[in-house]
Design a protein around this nucleic acid. Structure first.
Lengths: 133, 133
DNA sequence: CTAATTGCAAATTGTTTGCATATTC
DNA sequence: GAATATGCAAACAATTTGCAATTAG
């Protein structure tokens, strides 16, 4: 609620529900998934509304988004990290950068301006990597 | 030609044309752009064909792809680097990683398997950054 | 009361697919 | 000659838009 207010966004039940889903630590969702989850408790909600909400939340820096194979994922973790898409189970796993690595200072920027960075990995998550051994 | 042969892909004029466009150093293209470019010299070519070609080239590791805001870009630079999407002029600029940074060793991987990494930046390219000062 | 947001349907964009024809190897 | 690729039209998936009705501040 505070986050919405701080950004001048109106506090609607739909927005609160979407935020409830997305704010769980370490969670990553696609719009469609959130829509399906919410449909149960909030049957009137629309996929378009979910998309609209995600747009205002990302525009206001409340959540983060990144894309994998043509679809957009959302997460509440705003710290610099990589997202690993597991090619076996289709989930996303956060991958922290090694301590001595500050992602945002890794580039030779020479007079460019970087506003956002998205580091997406593809491979096998911890669980699937273990199971495939 | 050698690259195609090595991967067991048939050498067709369409594939050669696409590769000619994409192989220019530092160039980044969307399928649609390549299609428009080639339409002039090769009027029979189709957007679907361009997409098919890009798929076989990426599947065989001949070129690289990454996505920005829902559209896929292709490049021939296979070295580890970041791609900066300029929000002003809409082009992509390669950004090399600082020497002491090996992108693929930056993560705390602990038993995960990483097959590919895509680092996409958004901001202003060198030219637009200069012009906006 | 006013501006913002929702819900709905329809439109758009980027990309893929099925299939007949043509082309490489 | 067999397998693969092209061209074309049609299908698809993800996302956005226009607009009327509703709701938050």
């Amino acid at each position: 609620m505070e986050l919405l207010r701080k950004s001048g966004l109106k506090v609607t039940p739909q927005r609160l529900s979407v935020m409830n889903v997305i704010m769980e630590a370490g969670e990553h969702f696609k719009a469609e998934e959130v829509y399906r989850k919410l449909k149960k408790s909030e049957p009137s909600i629309t996929l378009a509304t979910v998309y609209n909400i995600f747009r205002s939340l990302t525009d206001n820096g409340i959540i983060n988004s990144f894309e994998v194979d043509g679809t957009t994922w959302f997460e509440s973790n705003l710290d610099a990290h990589a997202n690993l898409f597991c090619e076996k189970c289709g989930t996303i796993e956060d991958v922290s950068l090694s301590e001595n690595s500050n992602l945002l200072e890794q580039f030779s920027l020479d007079g460019r301006k970087v506003r956002s960075a998205s580091l997406v990995l593809k491979g096998l998550c911890t669980k699937c990597s273990r199971n495939s051994r």
